[in-house]
Each structure stands twice: as structure tokens, then as C-alpha cells.
Simulated scan of single mutants.
Amino acid sequence: MELTRAQEEEYRSRVRGCLLGGATGDALGAPVEFMTLSGIRAEHGDHGVREYVADYSTGKPRYGLITDDTQMTLFTMEGLIRAGLRSDRGTGFHPVGILHQSYLTWHETQTVREPSGEWPGWLQGERWLYEQRAPGNTCLSALAMSVAREGSWQKYGGPAVNNSKGCGGVMRSAPIGLLPPHWNGVDSAIFTWAAEAAGLTHGHPTGKLASGALALLVHRLVVGEDLAAALDTVMAELSRHDRHEETTTALRRAREAAASESPSAETVERLGGGWIAEEALAIAVYCALARSRPEDFLDALSLAVTHSGDCDSTGAICGNILGALHGETVLPPQLTFEVEGRGTMLQLADDFVWEFTASRLLHGEYGPFTRWTVRYRGG
């Protein structure tokens, strides 16, 4: 089934909204990530963080800098496009191995100063992605170990050998849920792909299941469900998986808090710090529910980053959720216009939509033969 023109425009808006919304939340929360709530309020007032804080690491102020959360999200999206191109060659859509390759590409950006040219895809050539922004140690070590274990970056797909449930898996999983609305009916597959992709770096079941939950939540929003209905679908899917209890309990607490309490940073902190997967997801969901109207997008992001925890990750996930729910028109211009890498993100978002709605015009086993296969080589 093909999308109508109106449906494709709505879909594109959701993809862009999810990607840029996540980046905006990430950049808003990054400068206050290691501060206490009282320290944040002392600097920003009781209303919390509502504008970018300048970074002076290069000697001049820079605003809207993203972190490893958005970096890895972009590599997730590029990997999915390359997986789509590969499925056209008759192998079926199986993204996890190619996502591992994409994450290994990201790993190189964190360990060298400039592109080596050895990795597939155009994203590895974006020099601005080679800055280290407090990358997660679990992601770095798991990816380094996978290269050492296999002996080559060309062999990939093995799960992480650790028991971590840090939020580094869930914070990059939203693009898997952005697979288009005419893919309706593949909920369990999307959940499983995201869980397995998270498992490439985080071995604990909760780290994987929370990642699957976010991807499925985003997909149900893309299909057109409201936030409450989408969460119902997620809870039902979680119940079918062993050791789901931590993630299910965290989401239930978030929903109950949003329904019974006025939005506050104190409520956010009762849900946890966001350093581990189920807490990061729960905080983001709570903030999205508490400030769910389109006009409240900035209020939701501010709530998601104003706490004594992993502010950039909770801001990013909240932005992913509400961007997918409402589309790009809810993005606050006063922040989004200067988020780092916006041009790259828009290119990637549009390419993602084209791959999954118009691939017949770009590539095929018997043609057409366009430079798309060069742009996304190595699938």
C-alpha cells in the first residue's frame, strides 16, 4: 500500500519532528546534565531550563550542541536506510547487523580526529560528528570489544558481553519506530529489532526491553494513535516478554504520576535519575504526558531536562516522542534554528522517508541505478 500525498507529508513531518525534537531536547539538557536540581534552579530560576546554555570550550560561545545521544540516533537512522537498500536485493529487512556496523562507524568518530574513509555511508564524512560529547563508556567499551572479538569491523551483529541497563540503548532507538505507517502490523518486529539493536551494547534485559518499548511507542504515534493508546500497545507488547517487570513498572508509575500530580521537577526525580534505561524512558513519557499539547512542547522539554540526572537523554527521548506525535510544526523555532547539525538531520530525515516510501525511484535489483547506492553503500 502506498501513502497518499497528504499521508506522506504528515509522515515526513513526524520523522523530522522526531529527529529534530530529540536533538533539541538533547542540546537543551546537555549543559546541566551533572548539576543538581537546586543548582539548576539557582542558575535558571524555578521555571527550569528553557534556553540553550553557551559552550565556551573553543573560546567563543556555541549554542545548541548535541551529545552522543543524537550522534548515535543519526547513525541508527542511516543504518536503517542502508538496511532498506539491502532488503531490495532480496535479503529481507533485517536491520540489526547493519545497525551494528553503523554503531561501529560512530565508535570511530569518537576515537580518531577525522574520517578515515573506510566506513560505508556519507554520515561518517561529517566532521562535526567527530567531537566527543561525554560518550557513554558502556557503548564505547562494548563496541571496542566487538571489534576485538571478531577481528574486523566487517564482521558484526554479536550481542554485548555485559549486564548493563544504562540508557545508551534506549536514547538512540526512536528511528526504528519511524518506519512508515503503511508498515502497520509489524509491532512485534519493530520492538524486537530495537531490543536486539540495544543489545549490541547493553546486555541487561531491561536495557533491551526499554529500547524496544520506545521504538514501538514512536511507531504507534507514526501510525496515528494518540499517546495513551500507543502506550497501551507498548504495555501489551512488554507483557509478552520475559523480565519485562522493571520497564512495565516504570511506565506505569509515569502514567499514574501524569494523571494524578501537577507537573513538577520533584515528580520527575521520584521517577529516578534517568541514568538507566527504564528510568530515562519513564521520565520522558511522564513529561510528554504531563505537557502533551502541541503548544506545550517547550514546556515538556524544560520539564524533561530540569532535574538532577541524565538531563540530555531524558530531554532527547521526550523530544523524540512529542516530535513523532505532533510533527515538526511543534518545534520551538527559538531553539531549533540553531541546534547543531540541523542541515544534516534534515537531509537524513528526508532520505529516510524517500527510502521507505519511494525506493522504487532510487534503486532496484533491475534498476533504476542511481547514485543512491553510492550514498548508502555497504548495506
Results as ranks from 00 to 15, higher is better:
S102E: 11
S102T: 04
S102A: 15
W106Q: 07
H107A: 12
H107R: 15
T111D: 04
T111E: 13
R113L: 11
P115N: 13
G117V: 01
E118Y: 00
P120A: 10
P120G: 04
P120I: 03
G121F: 11
W122C: 14
Q124E: 15
E126M: 09
W128M: 13
Y130M: 08
Y130L: 07
E131A: 06
A134R: 08
P135K: 06
T138K: 06
T138H: 03
T138R: 07
S141N: 08
S141Q: 06
M145S: 10
M145Q: 03
M145F: 02
M145H: 03
S146K: 01
V147A: 02
R149D: 05
E150M: 02
W153K: 01
G157R: 08
G157I: 00
G158P: 00
A160F: 01
V161N: 12
V161A: 13
N162V: 03
S164P: 14
S164K: 01
S164D: 07
K165Q: 10
K165T: 12
G166R: 00
G166P: 07
C167A: 14
V170W: 06
M171Q: 08
M171K: 15
R172T: 00
I176N: 04
L178C: 10
P180T: 13
P180F: 12
H182K: 05
W183T: 07
N184S: 07
G185I: 03
A189Q: 11
I190G: 13
F191T: 07
A194D: 15
A195Y: 09
A198P: 15
G199R: 02
L200Q: 07
T201S: 14
P205R: 12
T206A: 15
G207H: 07
G207S: 06
L209D: 07
A210G: 07
S211E: 09
S211L: 12
S211M: 13
G212A: 10
A213E: 11
